[in-house]
Amino acid sequence: MRTVNQRISPYLYLIPSLILLVAFTYYPILSSVYISLHEWNLFTPEPKFVGFENYTILFGDPLFWRVARNTLVYVAVTIPITMAMALIMAILLNERLGWLRNAYRVAAFYPTMIPMAAAAMLWVWLLNPGIGLINHYLASFGVPRIEWLYNMDWALPAIMMTAIWKNFGYFMLIYLAGLQNLPGELYEAASLEGAGFLHKVRLITLPLLAPTTVFVVVVGIITSFNVFDLVHLMTQGGPGNRTNVLVYYIYQHAFRFADYGMGSALTVVFVVMILAVILVLMRLLERRTHYEV
């Protein structure tokens, strides 16, 4: 009796989350795969099976490759900078700075607390080429006027800047939490051996923070790949699709163009892409990470 109970009870406990996962994750993914094999749009109101045609069209479309490239550039640039800033701030703010420490912590974390829509609109004004504060200050350093969101080359960097400003506080908080857990005796020992601040950071802090870093990387990649709100609010993918990213492209197809087949094909490609990137990174990072201290 007890053994049966023991065998069944874990599954019983899993049922609530299983139901939610099936309803909101597994079923939609499978159904996306199914719809992606159909032509289903305004001209074909009833889904018609077309095999991999949606994928063929997609991979043959230069715009898709531009969107994919924009997304990868966004991920590849924002994550390292966000992480570096978060880590440096966390290490500095973990030092004893007296009452200033909390003030700095609040200052660094505050962008994260602003609603995304408000932050995006704030930056639209800050970045306004004519009357925005950023160009105003840049001009006082003699930097020529930049058209930011109006410009094909500067629009994506401008969005990345906003994202970094908005997100690094969150990762800083996670790093701070990680830092609080590091054993003090190691630092004491290092001090006795005469190690300086930078030595300690390089030889103790960074290696011991590796598990936190894995978490930050994975969460960072997922949030970066999912960037939508900033693009939607600041540029709507423009000018000339230079800020169009995968999730926004999916939204355009599925909701604006009412092309459900293509929207689903894009979703499938997106899921595969994000899983692949995470798998590769986990492999790389896990090899160097030790979870016990």
Binding site: N41, L42, F43, L63, M152, G238, P239, G240, N241, Q252, R256, F257, A258, D259
Partner: peptide
């Protein structure tokens, strides 16, 4: 029909040429 798509196609062509 699918005017949203039509609009994106034209806008994108205009944006590229304008640049």
């Amino acid at each position: 029909p699918v005017y949203q798509r039509v609009r994106e196609i034209l806008k994108s062509a205009l944006d590229d040429a304008q640049a």
